[in-house]
Simulated assay, not measured.
Amino acid sequence: MRGLGPVVLGMALLAAPAAWARDGVEVGGNSAFSKLVPAESVEQTAKTQYLQTLQQAKQQEALAPANHPQLVRLRRIAQRIIPHAAAWNPRARDWQWEVNLIGSKQINAWCMPGGKIAFYTGILETLKLNDDEVAAVMGHEIAHALREHARERMGKSAATNLGANLLSQLLGAGQLGQTVIGGGAQLLSLQFSRDDETEADLVGLELAARAGFDPRAGITLWQKMGAQNKGAPPQWLSTHPAGKNRIAEMEKNLPRVMPLYEQAKKS
């Protein structure tokens, strides 16, 4: 959205509610707390931390080369999902998307703000994920970035720890956000709420379905997660186990996304 005039920006804002009214899942708008922290600052911080993570993996000879079969597969799946991202967040059109694979036994994957994606070989090999299940994982992680959950958590931290109302009046919301960013926020260690996780599940289902991946794989994915962890939460969702309620919520929303999947298969 940078460089667009106020008229175009206003049109984009007016168009935003249509994203929630169209066919697919319904999760409402993004949290107002995210507005306390500048998106550009969060995305720049994400880029810096992403590069640091990749450099560390490279030093440990754990960063997969571009011709690694699993990385080729991940990037192919991402190429199908990413075109559907902007419907959920217009900023995604300008993101410099990246997908990388890190050699590790961790059952883990994530997407930082700005479209910086990483998978660990452990989640692919241990759970023996098929393409539809990989799309469910990737859709879930991309959804966190599109819904700006990290930015929201940082905004809530600002409101709680710094007194958002007072500082916004004295400094302006932008400076408040810079204060939070300058505090050394570690994006990989941020923990999302149950509501955030539910949103990511549902938006991820829709992203996968629109990309032509079977959204029912989201159910088998979480069943595999539960079996692997024997009921304990997996490492990548340390405070938010899948559980029967989570799977039930996805099952309830399958009728909303299955037509999208069927339509995508025809196109």
Rank of each mutant, 00 (worst) to 15 (best):
Q70T: 10
E125W: 10
I117L: 10
P17W: 08
G182C: 10
A242R: 10
R246Q: 02
L124I: 02
N165K: 08
E197F: 03
G218I: 02
N229E: 13
P255G: 01
A217N: 07
I123M: 08
P255V: 03
V72K: 11
N30T: 12
V180Q: 05
Q191F: 13
V203R: 05
E26Q: 14
K224S: 00
Q235Y: 10
S104W: 06
P259I: 05
R210S: 04
C111H: 06
G28I: 05
Y261P: 06
M112G: 08
N245D: 14
E43H: 04
A227P: 10
P65Y: 01
A227T: 13
F33W: 14
I181R: 08
A109V: 07
Q96A: 14
R80F: 00
Q79I: 04
P259C: 06
A12Y: 13
D195C: 00
L146I: 07
D201F: 06
L146T: 03
R80Q: 09
I181T: 05
R256M: 11
E61T: 12
A200K: 04
L36H: 08
R76I: 00
R147M: 14
D196S: 11
A12H: 11
V25F: 11
S41M: 12
H144R: 07
T239C: 00
G218M: 04
V203E: 01
A227R: 14
L207K: 04
G184M: 10
E249W: 09
P90I: 05
Q70L: 14
H68R: 11
P38E: 05
L13A: 14
N161L: 15
